[in-house]
Amino acid sequence: MVLLLVDSQAWIITIVGWLIVFAALIVLVIVFNNVPRIMNINFKKKAKTNQTQQLSDSDDKKYLSGDETAAIAMALHLFFEEQHDEESNIITIKRIERRYSPWSSKIYGVRNFPR
């Protein structure tokens, strides 16, 4: 049969092909919708044997939003990276009497050509 200048085989490939792509990804959707649930079942079983009460509290906090994760990561980063020696917290500027030093003299930093 020819429909819109295309034979029936092409239509079959089109429809069946697209449905298979859908099927493949829908299977993945179903599986990955349930993966966290399956992983939590194990967690629940372990927890039930110990403290059933604590489980219900922690249930709400199982997933953290991206913002919360970022905030916690930032706090930890600051805590670990900012550590340094204990200091007196008194800052003073010492005056140096002899200001001239040949190391900082401008005369050594420029070329001196004879005129």
């Binding site: 819109l4 200048l5 295309v6 034979d7 092409a10 239509w11 490939i13 089109t14 429809i15 092909g17 697209w18 792509v21 859908f22 493949a24 990804l25 829908i26 993945l28 959707v29 990955f32 919708n33 993966v35």
Partner: peptide, 28 residues
């Protein structure tokens, strides 16, 4: 991002209509 919201995966399948529509067009 895909694992956190698996239903969005279906959009990747929907857009593949481009492949099959072009297949029909080329056949025509």
């Amino acid at each position: 991002s895909l694992i956190s919201n698996p239903k969005l995966m279906i959009l990747g399948a929907a857009a593949q209509i481009g492949i099959f529509a072009t297949f029909l067009g080329a056949s025509a």
